[in-house]
Design a protein around this nucleic acid. Structure first.
Lengths: 124, 124
DNA sequence: AAGCATGGATTACAACTGTAATCTTAACAC
DNA sequence: GTGTTAAGATTACAGTTGTAATCCATGCTT
């Protein structure tokens, strides 16, 4: 499988915008992030630049502003992050991790029902 | 709840040793890591030093060698990491995360049975 | 045409990371 | 007691990250 670039915490937030709203100009991304974070616009631009440099995003020139879009899918990134998390924290043992989450966290009755449905579906 | 220090990838590996085998001298930690990693002994000592500095580990002088031990529990750290992962990747939605893992990953029949047992246990 | 505004490019800068090597001090071997 | 060894302390050094500010070029305003 292809190599997913290392995407940092803050870069993730920018990628999320691109995943849900692309292509987008830097200003659209900034706008989109406005209520969730408090970065200066320049900060967002820096992050966009870094994402381009590390090939997580690309752009085309429209007129003066660039149109940015993701080069990696959210799914790929989620998989990569999950794998790394699982390995780091649970030594790679998925069943351990799931058991731990299921036990420790509060889930609504509906969540529980849905998870059981998924598990049932996997049995066959 | 108390503030868990930020523990890096490599530091985690050292903490794991301390969690399972403490107190331990630097050399015992090095020994213990020998087959899983290829760091030079000095590298491990650097990591121990950093963990002490960031209050994730402590030590007592025995004779010339120090005896290191964890100052934070594995459970606390796992929780903190999990929280951060969940927030970063799934926007904090635990049910989403679980559903995604359950669907995407391969689980043995026994794993599935156990997870269902856990879910059943949570229902009441 | 001249200047201002705006977008991206470049530069900044400290903290954290990965990965060690060197320095210093104290104990142990003779 | 004097040299060697070995433990921790200090220093190294580049890459990443968080968080921007400044620089430069180009298009819009008048």
């Amino acid at each position: 499988m292809k190599q997913i670039p290392q995407i940092s915490e803050t870069e993730w937030q920018v990628m999320k915008v691109l995943w849900s709203n692309s292509p987008a100009t830097a200003n659209q991304v900034i706008e989109n992030l406005a209520d969730s974070i408090t970065w200066k616009p320049k900060t967002v631009k820096t992050l966009l630049g870094r994402l381009v440099k590390k090939k997580a995003a690309g752009f085309e020139k429209d007129n003066r502003a660039y149109l940015y879009y993701p080069l990696v899918t959210e799914d790929e990134c989620v998989k990569a992050e999950s794998h790394s998390f699982l390995k780091r924290v649970y030594g790679g043992a998925l069943n351990l991790m799931l058991a731990s989450f299921l036990e420790a966290e509060k889930l609504s009755r509906e969540d529980i029902e849905e998870l059981k449905r998924i598990l049932d579906g996997k049995k066959d």
